[in-house]
Design a binder for these strands. Structure first.
Lengths: 171, 171
DNA sequence: CGATTCATGTAACGGGTTACATGATTCG
DNA sequence: CGAATCATGTAACCCGTTACATGAATCG
C-alpha cells in the first residue's frame, strides 16, 4: 500500500475514524498524499483485516456512528519498520519527473523550453506556502523538516531549470 | 499506466518487440522504471487493445516468433500529450521520500540520524554512475539532461542531509 | 546433451480509482 | 424545508506483481 506509512503514522499519533483521517489528509497533507476518501475507508478495513489496526464503534451525541481505529501492537511494529525503511532510503532518482526529458527531442526545442518554463513557475509557486509553514513551526519539528526538505528540492529543481532555460537546448 | 510515457516514447523511437523493450529497461533505464518483463508484455497488449500500438508478427532466421510493436497515429498523439504534460509539471514535492520525516519523533533521535546517514550514503552512491553518463554523452542529449537533472536533485538531497546531520535533531 | 538465451505469455492476487449509494443531523 | 455536514461504504474496473508455464535455438 502506497500510503501505508502515512496511515499508520497518523494512527500512531492518536486513534481516529475515517472521516477525521480524510480531513487531515485533505486539509493539512495534500502535498504528501492523494488518497481519496473511499480509498481511505477500504485501506482502514484492510489494516484491520491484517491485524494492524482495530476499530471501536463510537457514537457521540446524536451524530452518526463512527469507527475509531487504533493501532495494535503489530501495527505499531509495522509502522516503525516502514518508518525506518523510509528514512533509510529516499529513492529520489526514481521519481517520475525525469521521464519526459528522455524524449524531449520529439518536440521542437522552443516548445520544450516553453513547457519547462511552465514547470518552473508551477514549482516555484509551491515555495511560499512551504516557507510559511517552515517559519510557523519550531525549527526541528516534523512539519519544519518536511517543509525544509521540500524547499531544498524545489530550489534545486528551479536552479536546474534556470540553467536549461538560460542556455537553451541546442548548444 | 505508470510507465505509459516510457513505453510510448521508446516505441516512438523505433518499433520493438517485448523482449527488446525489456532488455533496454533492464540494462539502460533501471533507474527510470521498475517494469517487470511480464508486466511489459501485458502493457504492450493493452496499448494494442487501446489502438495506440500495432503488432506485426516477425520471424528472423530460425529464432522464435516475435511481435514487433509500432505506434499508430493515435499512439503518437498520445505520446506527445503525455510528454507535454510530463515536461510541464514535475510534481516533485509529492515524492514519497518526505513521508517518513513527518513521524521521525517516533524513533529516538540518534536512530533517526543513523538512518539518515545511511540515506546519505545510498544517495551519494548513485552519483558516480550518473556523472559518468553525463560525461560520456553530448551536453544537450537526452541522456545528459536526465543525468544532469538527477544529479542536481541528488546534490540537493545530500546537502540537505548534511545540514541535518551536522546540526542534529534536538536543537 | 545440458545450460543459456531468445521469446511470450497466463492465472491469481493485491490494491487504487471512480462513480454511485445511503442515511442521519444540523444550520439557515 | 432544503442544503450542507457528518459518516461510511459498495461495485466495477484498471493495472501492477508474482509465480508459473512453454518452447525453440544456440553454445560449450
Amino acid at each position: 500500500m502506497e500510503d501505508e506509512l502515512l496511515l499508520l503514522g497518523l494512527l500512531s499519533g492518536s486513534a481516529m475514524h475515517g472521516y477525521q483521517l480524510n480531513e487531515i489528509i485533505e486539509q493539512r497533507l495534500p502535498m504528501l498524499s492523494k488518497l481519496k476518501p473511499s480509498t481511505a475507508y477500504s485501506a482502514l478495513d484492510r489494516l484491520a483485516a491484517q491485524g494492524l489496526a482495530e476499530a471501536t464503534v463510537e457514537r457521540v451525541g446524536r451524530r452518526p456512528e463512527r469507527k475509531v481505529y487504533g493501532l495494535t501492537p503489530a501495527g505499531r511494529e509495522r509502522f516503525l519498520d516502514l518508518l525506518r525503511e523510509n528514512l533509510r532510503s529516499a529513492d529520489l532518482p526514481a521519481y517520475a519527473g525525469d521521464r519526459g526529458l528522455l524524449f524531449h527531442r520529439a518536440l521542437p526545442a522552443n516548445e520544450v523550453l516553453a513547457l519547462l518554463a511552465e514547470r518552473r513557475e508551477a514549482t516555484l509557486a509551491r515555495a511560499p506556502r512551504l516557507r510559511r509553514l517552515l517559519e510557523s513551526h519550531p525549527p526541528r519539528s516534523a512539519a519544519a523538516l518536511v517543509a525544509g526538505h521540500a524547499l531544498a528540492l524545489i530550489d534545486a529543481e528551479v536552479t536546474w531549470l534556470d540553467g536549461i532555460l538560460g542556455e537553451g537546448l541546442d548548444a
